[in-house]
Each structure stands twice: as structure tokens, then as C-alpha cells.
Write a protein that binds this DNA or RNA. Structure first.
Lengths: 112, 112
DNA sequence: CAGGATCCCGTCGGATACTG
DNA sequence: CAGTATCCGACGGGATCCTG
């Protein structure tokens, strides 16, 4: 994945590069404290395409936020769960979510 | 400004739409507790173009995070500062920054 | 089942020049 | 001084189809 060009090495920008974008926080939240399969994630997020889900999971894995657990049984079976780093991110996401909830009504998306 | 398409009305995604992108957190940080002029912001962030800085400031203003204070003197003089909502966002940004600092070294930008 | 390949389009952000 | 106007390339993300 690519990082946003980061003048001043701004740590906020750096973190945004990681959890920004459309899907990553949603994916992390869908994984939660579970160990969950690719197909199950796809069910939870019907709007995401295979390609994008696959790419986001790779990004999150290479960032060390999730584990990818592959069994060699058939049918193929791949599961994902959060690493300690991923778990440590969740409270931050909660803070972000709380701020968003308290300062912006749901309707704002249609307001602008 | 446009919001990321937001399935599930995810409040994290909503907040990311606001403070994501390359410049907004940096701008908010540069304003800080000061009242600061457009030209001064431009000096603090030499890498940002007039067009982008102007657009970002408009976004932040329409989101209610900053005030735009215009005097009708000549030469033209426009200043910006944080609103209460903008101030309330800063601790969240600090949390995000702390997480970024503790989990990712500066070098990560060049690593991937 | 879990993805990769391909094609496509909209938006973000940069460069440069211009203006009241 | 504080912006606008114009042009442009790069990237994110979607749709669809294919495969070990």
C-alpha cells in the first residue's frame, strides 16, 4: 500500500494512511475479537468487492494489524484475527468514533 | 467537500472524511490556539499550494472546525482560528498521533 | 473458497498563472 | 494579500470475470 506523502512526518497523517480510506476501520471492527473467515467478512460487508477486500486484508496484514491463518485442508479455509497492535488500535478508533458521533449527526453526509 | 461513501454510517469513516486527507490535521495543528493569517499558514507549510490550502480552509470552515475572520482593511487581511468543535478535535488527534508514534517508526514510510 | 487479473472512472492533490 | 482558474497525472476504489 502507499502512504500519503507525509511532510513533517506528521504522526496523524501516518496513522491516517493506515486506517484511512473507506474500508479499513470497518474491516477491523468486523473482525473484532473474533477469528473470522474471508467469506464471512464478505457477508458482513456485501458492498465490498473481492478485490478490494483482499487488498485491504493484505495491507492490514503487512502493517501487522491482523493475522492471516491458512489451513491446508480442502476446501480452502483462511481466517483472520487482530494482532496485539490491531487490538491496541481499537480504543483509538472508539475515540474517533465518539468524536464523530458527538459532533456530527448522521445526516451530514447528505448535507454537503 | 465530498464524504467517503459511508456504508453502515460508520462514525469512524465519517470522522476520517473530515480529518483524513493529506493536509487537514496538519492545518489544524498549525492553527493551534492561535489566530493566524492565510499567508502565515502558507509559510508554515511551504509544500502546500494556494489552491489546496484555500480549499482545505473552506472545508474546515464549512465543517465548523475553524472560523474565518475577514477585515475590510487594505491590504486584505484574513485570519483563521479554531472553533470549539475544532478545539474538541485536538485531543482526538493527539490520541491518534500517540498511537502512530508508539506503533510505527518514522521509517515506515520508506519501508513499503 | 479465497483471491487474482483486467478494465474503468472519479476524485485528490500538484503546478502554474492570474486577479480584486 | 488572499485567494481563483485551468490543466493534469496519480491513486483509490468499483465491476466483472477468471482460477488453484
Amino acid at each position: 500500500m502507499r502512504f500519503i506523502d507525509n511532510p513533517f512526518q506528521c504522526p496523524v497523517t501516518r496513522t491516517m494512511s493506515i486506517i484511512g480510506g473507506k474500508w479499513k476501520p470497518i474491516i477491523l471492527n468486523c473482525i473484532g475479537d473474533k477469528t473470522i473467515r474471508f467469506g464471512k467478512l464478505n457477508q458482513l460487508m456485501p458492498a465490498i468487492s473481492n478485490k478490494v477486500l483482499s487488498k485491504e486484508l493484505k495491507d492490514l496484514e503487512s502493517l501487522g494489524l491482523i493475522n492471516r491463518l491458512e489451513s491446508d485442508e480442502l476446501p480452502q479455509r483462511v481466517e483472520y484475527n487482530l494482532t496485539d497492535a490491531g487490538i491496541s488500535l481499537m480504543p483509538v478508533l472508539v475515540e474517533v468514533a465518539n468524536w464523530g458521533n458527538s459532533h456530527f449527526a448522521k445526516q451530514i453526509e447528505s448535507k454537503l
